[in-house]
Amino acid sequence: MQKDDFSNSYVVEGKLALPYTYFAGRLGSTFLTTLRDQARIMGVRCDKCGKVFLPPRQTCERCLEDIRDKWVALESTGVVVNFTVVRQQDKHLPRKTPYVLGMIKLDGADTPIVHIIEGVDPDKISEGMRVKAIFAPESEPSILLINHFEPAA
């Protein structure tokens, strides 16, 4: 079989740059402004299945109940239920590597959130570790209003 000739093949550099806008919506905005102005983390509870969701959502995706008004204040402490160590540096990452991304279940919540864990050697992190939120009220309104979590006593 004749081999293909690739002498005319080359690579063209390109870029995809497009602006977009994310709307948090009423529920997401309440969550973020409460986080910013009161340093308080709010979840929502589904009365039907009893689950407390964080981040909050308008609908319990399991029962499809409308839970937008069922706010519950959560503790800013919780437990690491899973984690990974990010070691490969990339311009899109929020921290210099190596750093720890953890799944943290706050006290009072049934669903974990993903966040950065600092103040602990990446090789010493473990499931079950108690952590607390460190707030950054000066940040733009995103989940980085919590700057990171760190080990709690």
Binding site: F6, S9, G14, T21, F23, S29, L32, P141
Partner: peptide, 21 residues
Amino acid sequence: EQELVVLKRTISVNQRFATGP
């Protein structure tokens, strides 16, 4: 009025296209 949070971003990804022969 309730403050509605709006985040503006520009995604920017470098690409390399192979022309093929």
